[in-house]
Nucleic acid binder design. Structure first.
Lengths: 143, 143
DNA sequence: CTGTATCCTATATGATACTG
DNA sequence: CAGTATCATATAGGATACAG
């Protein structure tokens, strides 16, 4: 059928421009860290809730608490993805209520390091970004 | 009305956990670079389509071509956001068909630098990530 | 050429209920 | 505790048509 012109066309085109930008590994990487909770999960496992400690394993419930409003669904999904990518390990201990801990792999720790670098930029420049945003808003009172 | 319990509750909770994780500037930064086309736009303006050149101004139509499948809507929206954040400048030249060029500001160039660092991680490790992903899939033939 | 406005759908994500 | 399954919905994002 040629009925789903829209969807089909979009999918075809997608294949094209993915290929075109395939030389940018950042494309795939961004697809991964763009997930709403991925970076936060990596941060939590990589340096705790204050984003300033050392890597350490955490239980599902701890992660859920640290990432506050995250739903079970999203947390599970995020953890499964990161596990599949080899960025963290999932360890089940058959205690009375089962205990599951998540811990960054070396690969996960290295990505966390890269993310920290980006965070460095943010710490230095986000003030400037926000002040730009505000002045833009003020600069358009006619709106 | 107290009808939109879901939406309202979510918004309230959101305020809470945003505050909780506010010590992570990466939170706001990620909100920005998580936009599907932001990183690609910064890459294009920062180092061209091959992600390996020097920063240079580009016209709307050039960006549209480089970011292949991007829609006008998304490209415009992305550019407006980046402009509002002071990451790039928009210059209109009143030629016959109007000419508009976009160029990274110093701030934008510096962010591009940070993103390049992340790209460095990707270049080194994405192979590993993908091989992990594949072996996971193969490891579950029962599915 | 460079947008703006509108509509429409896919997707992401949350709420809820249920399970080992 | 740590999920899984299902349903509901907000939002992002694309298609299309129009405009300066």
């Amino acid at each position: 059928m040629t009925t789903q012109t829209a969807a089909d066309a979009r999918r075809d085109t997608a294949a094209e421009y993915n290929a075109f930008l395939a030389n940018c590994p950042s494309r795939q990487l961004l697809d991964r860290i763009s997930d709403k909770w991925v970076a936060l999960t990596l941060s939590a496992l990589g340096s705790g809730p204050d984003c300033d400690g050392d890597p350490r394993p955490l239980r599902f419930s701890e992660l859920r608490r640290i990432l506050a409003g995250v739903s079970q669904k999203m947390l599970t999904q995020t953890l499964r993805n990161l596990e599949a990518d080899g960025l963290l390990t999932r360890t089940v201990t058959a205690t009375v209520p089962v205990t599951v801990t998540y811990e960054l792999t070396d690969l996960g720790v290295s990505l966390h390091g890269a993310i920290r670098a980006l965070k460095g930029w943010a710490e230095q420049h986000m003030d400037e970004v926000f002040s730009n945003r505000t002045s833009q808003a003020v600069a358009c009172p006619a709106g």
